[in-house]
Amino acid sequence: MPVDIDIAKVARLARLALDDEELERYRQQCEVVLEHAARVQALPTDGVPPTSHPLPRTNAFRDDVVTECLDREEVLSQAPERDGDYFLVPRILDEA
């Protein structure tokens, strides 16, 4: 099954700043892999439920108990950029 990927859109969704040449290369490679992967569509799966977890289990809960937090300095020491007690990022264009 031929696959046609809007690679620029996919790269934007994935927050990957790729140039045109890179996009074209990835498009070709992804299409080869996806054409192979698309073979799954040949298998009839009517009425077959999907598997998200290899071992079925339910209700893994924790008690509502407060546990120790990390030391702020240890956390912020890994930040690429900080301002005082905050992580600093460049301006945000859109609301979430």
Partner: peptide
Amino acid sequence: IHAATHSLI
């Protein structure tokens, strides 16, 4: 938000 230079988190 639109006039900000940066944001603190």
